[in-house]
Nucleic acid binder design. Sequence first.
DNA 1: ACACATGTTTCTATTGACAGAAACAAAAAT
DNA 2: ATTTTTGTTTCTGTCAATAGAAACATGTGT
Lengths: 91, 91
Amino acid sequence: MDTLKEISNSIAKLSNEEINAFLTEILTEKEISTLSNRWRILKMLNQNFSQRDIASKLNVSLCKITRGAKILKNKNAISLRLIRKTENEFN
Amino acid sequence: MDTLKEISNSIAKLSNEEINAFLTEILTEKEISTLSNRWRILKMLNQNFSQRDIASKLNVSLCKITRGAKILKNKNAISLRLIRKTENEFN
DNA sequence: ACACATGTTTCTATTGACAGAAACAAAAAT
DNA sequence: ATTTTTGTTTCTGTCAATAGAAACATGTGT
């Protein structure tokens, strides 16, 4: 079985708090902030902020946002569904 | 709410397959292989392979393994519990 | 048609994780 | 006690993600 799937299966058994703890353990601070930024970018893209807006609000470069935009162009993107499912609760 | 927690909460609602798809979307190939390697390192450390054994079997450097070892030294490490919980199923 | 906002790509430079190798520390085996 | 194995740290160099800036592409409103 491939390792990422194994990790996914393991994560799937955890609670919110445990997932948070696990990610904090296995990722570095920088990686966590990278991941967080990508998530914020996806959310703001989904909310139709302009790329330049997002870049200045999150202090990231445009090239990073293009990457996020490519993910969301796939209409079946999990990220898109996930963000839409959760955006009501957290905004 | 901090972003990592938000991500964790969102992931917690997903199935194995969805988590796998999400990680594949939001991480680069290199990052996935980095993450996978860290997971394998933790597993092998937990199985009491020597660090040099792990280094040569996984083709990673020793300095990377020290990092994994530090995580596992914390007896309450989530990773440790997670690995022990899942190792019977996947090995 | 034109100006202007927005999306996308491209260039160079920076940065952090990590490889490779060696040194040092501590413990176990003999 | 000393040899050997194992854990840990340190040094230099590499590489991938990405910042910063600019250019190019595609609208969209006027």
